[in-house]
Write a protein that binds this DNA or RNA. Structure first.
Length: 570
RNA sequence: CGGCCUGUAGCUCAGUUGGCAGAGCAGCUGACUCUUAAUCAGCGGGUCCAGGGUUCGAAUCCCUGCAGGCCGACCA
C-alpha cells in the first residue's frame, strides 16, 4: 500500500482512512447530515443563565486538536466561523467500548477532517463557549495535510502566505485564512447592493453575447476564437456597450448587465485577462444625471459594507459621501500643469507634452495627447472621489458632442485613489455622426493606433432606427471591490486569478547516467566503488548524482567493508 | 520586455570562510479528564526548484533555465 509519490503524512492519512473502513465507518458517507445550528449562532447567542442550545448538531472541519488523555478539545470551522468542541472519552463512549474515542477520534481523525457533532453548549473553566460532544460522525476524511495557522493575542503564526499557492489553491486559502472569505462576501454584497438599487429604479437586468463577431464598445485587444460549424472567427467581448444600446433602441428604458469582459493584454496587480464590469444604460437621461446616479451607487455600497461612507484604502481614508466634485479635464490639466489646452492644435499639444517631459510618438492624435497629459500629470492627484468631465472628442468615439463645445464630449470618469473607477457618457445617438466617428477610428487605425475601434455596421443600422437620448455608465467591479475591501491586488478579489500553467514535476525515472551504472553493475556486482566509477567515465559530479539517485531508489547499495567501499545490486 | 528579490520538511523560516541538512508548528509513539500557539518525554520526515560548471567536497560560488513576488515599461 506504500506509494512513494506520497509524503509520509499523506500516507499516514490513507492508512487512517483504511482503518476507519475496517472499523465499519464510512469515511465518505452518502446520507445527509442534519445540522440545526451554526458556529456563529452559538457564539453570538449563548446565554449562561438561560443555558440555551442544549441539543445542538453542528458540522464542520476540524482545525485544531488538543488531546489530554481521556478528554480533548478541538475547533470546528463551519461556514460561519469556528467553535470549540469538548470531547470526553466516557461521554462519547458511555459503554465498555471506547473505540470511538481512543481509536477513531484520537488516532484516525486529523486536522482538516470534516465531522458532525451532537451535544450541548456550555462554557469551559477558561471561559470559552464550547460544545460538549455526545455523538460524533465522520463526514469526510481529508487526505492532504492542511497548513496549520495558529493565533495568539492577535498574532498569527505560521500563516499560509505564499501568494502563488494561495491563488492556485484558493480552497486551501479560504479554509485557513478567514479574512480571505470576508473579501469575497463583500464582493457579492457590492453586486447585490447595486442590483437591488437598479431594480428599485425599475431597470432591467439583461444578458448579451460574450461571443461577438465584432468586438466593440472599447479600445482593447480582444481574444479570438473560432466557431466550427459557422466557420467564422468570433471574439470574446471587450465591452457590452453596443449590445446594451441596441436594447435601448428596442425600447427598454433602463438595462444593465454584470458581465465578464476579456482583454488580451498584460497582467499585473490591477489587470486580469477576464474581469467583471457593470454597464448600465438609461433612456432620456444625460451624463449629469448619471453622475448623481453613480455617486448614489458608491455611497450605498460603502454604507452597505461598512455602515459608513468612510472607507480605508491603503494609507488613505476615502469618503464616498455624496456629492463629489466635478472638474472638467481642461480645468484639471490647467490646475496640475499650468497649461490651458483649450483650442490648441495637435502640434501645440505635442510641444506642451515635450515641455512637460511626456514622451509622444507620431501616431498619437490630439485626443491621445491630451489623455497622456492627464494620465501623467493629473490622474494620480484625485484620491477622493472626483468626476473628471468633458473629454476631447478624439478619444471618445461613442460619446455625444458637448452641448456647449463641439471639440468636447459629454463624458465623465469617476476617479478614486488616483484611478479610474467608472466611465460614462451621454450616448451618441446621431447615426451619421457615429459613422463619421468610426471612420475617424479607422483612420487612426491606419495611422498605427492598434487600439482603435472596429466599425460595427449592425450597430449603426440600429442607431438609424433611432435611439432615445441615453446615458450609459460602466464600472469596474473588480476595482470597486479592491477599493471597498482595501485589497492592493486584483488577485485578492478574484477567486481564481489567471495564472501561468502549473508545471508538473517530472516523474522519477532513471536518467542515462543511472542506467549506465545499473548496466555495469548487473554485469559486475558487487564491485569496488572506485573501479565502478572509473568504468562509467563520469565526472565526479555526475557520478555522485547518479549513484545517489540509484541508492535513493534502492536499486543499488553502497557498503563500507574492510577492503573499501563496495557497490552491489539491491 | 527590463531591474531587484525569493525558491531548503506538510506550513513558516534559519543555515557561518564551501566541510555529516537545522528549528518551531504539523506528523508518529507514549503520558495526561476544562485545554486553547495546551504541556511533558521520545521518534521519524528532505530530488535544498531544475540542468550544467568550478572543487577532493556545493543548499552555499559561477552559468543557463523554470516558477513566484515587488518595482518599472507596455497596456485600460
Amino acid at each position: 500500500m506504500n506509494n512513494p509519490a506520497l509524503s509520509e503524512q499523506e500516507q499516514i492519512r490513507r492508512n487512517s482512512l483504511q482503518k476507519l473502513r475496517e472499523l465499519g465507518i464510512d469515511p465518505y458517507p452518502a446520507a445527509q447530515y442534519h445540522v440545526n445550528i451554526t458556529a456563529s449562532e452559538i457564539i453570538n447567542n449563548f446565554n449562561d443563565e438561560k443555558n440555551n442550545f442544549q441539543d445542538v448538531c453542528l458540522a464542520g472541519r476540524m482545525m485544531s486538536r488538543r488531546i489530554m488523555g481521556k478528554a480533548s478539545f478541538a475547533e470546528l470551522q463551519d461556514h460561519t466561523g469556528r467553535i470549540q468542541i469538548y470531547v470526553n472519552r466516557d461521554e462519547l463512549c458511555p459503554g465498555e467500548d471506547k473505540t470511538m474515542y481512543n481509536d477513531v477520534f484520537k488516532k484516525h481523525l486529523d486536522i482538516g477532517d470534516i465531522i458532525g457533532v451532537k451535544g450541548f453548549v456550555f462554557r469551559t473553566q477558561m471561559g470559552e463557549i464550547s460544545i460538549h460532544v455526545k455523538e460524533m460522525t465522520v463526514l469526510n476524511k481529508s487526505l492532504h495535510p492542511l497548513p496549520i495557522v495558529k493565533e495568539k493575542d492577535g498574532k498569527t503564526y505560521d500563516a499560509f502566505t505564499d501568494p502563488e499557492q494561495r491563488y492556485r489553491m484558493r480552497y486551501v486559502d479560504l479554509i485557513v485564512n478567514p479574512q480571505v472569505k470576508d473579501v469575497f462576501v463583500k464582493r457579492t454584497k457590492i453586486i447585490n447592493t447595486m442590483r437591488e438599487m437598479f431594480n428599485g429604479y425599475g431597470y432591467f437586468e439583461v444578458e448579451t453575447p460574450i461571443l461577438q463577431p465584432i468586438p466593440g464598445g472599447a479600445a482593447a485587444r480582444p481574444f479570438i476564437t473560432h466557431h466550427n460549424s459557422l466557420d467564422i472567427p468570433l471574439y470574446l467581448r471587450i465591452a457590452n456597450e453596443l449590445y446594451l444600446k441596441r436594447l435601448i433602441v428596442g425600447g427598454f428604458e433602463g438595462v444593465y448587465e454584470f458581465s465578464k469582459d476579456f482583454r488580451n493584454e498584460g497582467m499585473d496587480r490591477t489587470h486580469n485577462p477576464e474581469f467583471t464590469v457593470m454597464e448600465i444604460y438609461v433612456a432620456y437621461k444625460d451624463y449629469k444625471w448619471m453622475m448623481s446616479f453613480t455617486e448614489e451607487i458608491c455611497e450605498r455600497v460603502a454604507l452597505a459594507l461598512h455602515g459608513t461612507t468612510k472607507v480605508k484604502l491603503g494609507n488613505n481614508i476615502i469618503d464616498y459621501k455624496t456629492p463629489y466634485p466635478r472638474v472638467t479635464m481642461y480645468e484639471a490639466i490647467k490646475e496640475h500643469t499650468g497649461y490651458d489646452i483649450s483650442g490648441k492644435t495637435e502640434d501645440e499639444l505635442r510641444e506642451i507634452s515635450d515641455k512637460l517631459g511626456i514622451e509622444t510618438d507620431p501616431t498619437m492624435g490630439k485626443g491621445k495627447l491630451i489623455d497622456e497629459i492627464f494620465g501623467e500629470k493629473c490622474e494620480h492627484h484625485y484620491i477622493q472621489p472626483t468626476f473628471i468631465t468633458d473629454y476631447p472628442i478624439e478619444m471618445s468615439p461613442l460619446t455625444k458632442k458637448h452641448r456647449d463645445n463641439p471639440e468636447l464630449t459629454e463624458r465623465f470618469e469617476l476617479m478614486v485613489n488616483g484611478k479610474e473607477l467608472a466611465n460614462a457618457y451621454s450616448e451618441l445617438n446621431d447615426p451619421i455622426d457615429q459613422r463619421e466617428r468610426f471612420q475617424e477610428q479607422l483612420r487612426l487605425s491606419e495611422k498605427g493606433d492598434n487600439e482603435a475601434m472596429f466599425i460595427d455596421q449592425d450597430f449603426l443600422r440600429a442607431l438609424e432606427y433611432g435611439m432615445p437620448p441615453t446615458s450609459g455608465m460602466g464600472m469596474g467591479i473588480d476595482r470597486l471591490t479592491m477599493f471597498m475591501t482595501d485589497s492592493p491586488s486584483i488577485q485578492d478579489v478574484l477567486f481564481f486569478p489567471q495564472m501561468k500553467p502549473e508545471v508538473k514535476k517530472p516523474k522519477v525515472e532513471l536518467n542515462e547516467d543511472e542506467k549506465l551504472i545499473l548496466e555495469l553493475l548487473k554485469a559486475n556486482s558487487p564491485i569496488d566503488l572506485n573501479e565502478l566509477k572509473n568504468l562509467t567515465g563520469l565526472s565526479n559530479k555526475k557520478w555522485d548524482k547518479a549513484i545517489k539517485g540509484l541508492t535513493g531508489l534502492k536499486l543499488a547499495k553502497v557498503e563500507k567493508k574492510d577492503e573499501g567501499l563496495v557497490v552491489s545490486i539491491e
